[in-house]
Design a protein around this nucleic acid. Sequence first.
DNA 1: CGCTTAAATTCCTAAATAATAATGTATGAT
DNA 2: ATCATACATTATTATTTAGGAATTTAAGCG
Lengths: 101, 101
Amino acid sequence: MTAAISILKMEKTCDNVSQILKALAHPGRLLVLGHLLNGPKAVGELTDLCAISQSQMSHFLMRMKIEGLVTVEREGKFRIYSIADKRLGRLLQTIQREYCR
Amino acid sequence: MTAAISILKMEKTCDNVSQILKALAHPGRLLVLGHLLNGPKAVGELTDLCAISQSQMSHFLMRMKIEGLVTVEREGKFRIYSIADKRLGRLLQTIQREYCR
DNA sequence: CGCTTAAATTCCTAAATAATAATGTATGAT
DNA sequence: ATCATACATTATTATTTAGGAATTTAAGCG
């Protein structure tokens, strides 16, 4: 029974999964991820796009980096953030498809 | 450009979406929803399946009902909870597919 | 009616999260 | 070496959330 397997897996993974979802579950961070879904961006770009303070954006990004949702790479004096992996991309797309219409 | 549309929608919906995700983002509630994905269940059943206290389960269910994730109906002295809609079902399945393996 | 079971509600305390402001650090340009 | 830019870090306070215990409500049964 496939449902039973899912539950067994879920019992083992729900702590990690809920950590990930907590990192997603914020209007500001969700919007940042939405923009990153369109491609990697520097902090300043994201700050402009989301119209929030530099400090708050930095906190958002730090949090999401710690949780493994985003990755950074340096490019001169900029830092370019990206969606960390395909799984998150697919999850975000599902969220958009189901709830952003 | 479909991505731009998504961002516009996301700007409008991210508060609501993040509310929903917050309600999901808890190991206990996630597990409850996992069980409900297998079909409607009474509070006592869920309490046994998840091995948590009656009080905590009731808190979980109340929270999720307020956020519209679950629905209740009375059946004698039991209260039967269900996943509120297909959208949530699909979201949960995506979460399981991507993160519960 | 009084009792039991099922579940909700209230109350309380601890812990996590969020927001803002201020300060610090690395890089590139002059 | 100095300065501006880009971003991170720290500190602080306010708000939310979590969890447990106790109480309450509602239904069914003797």
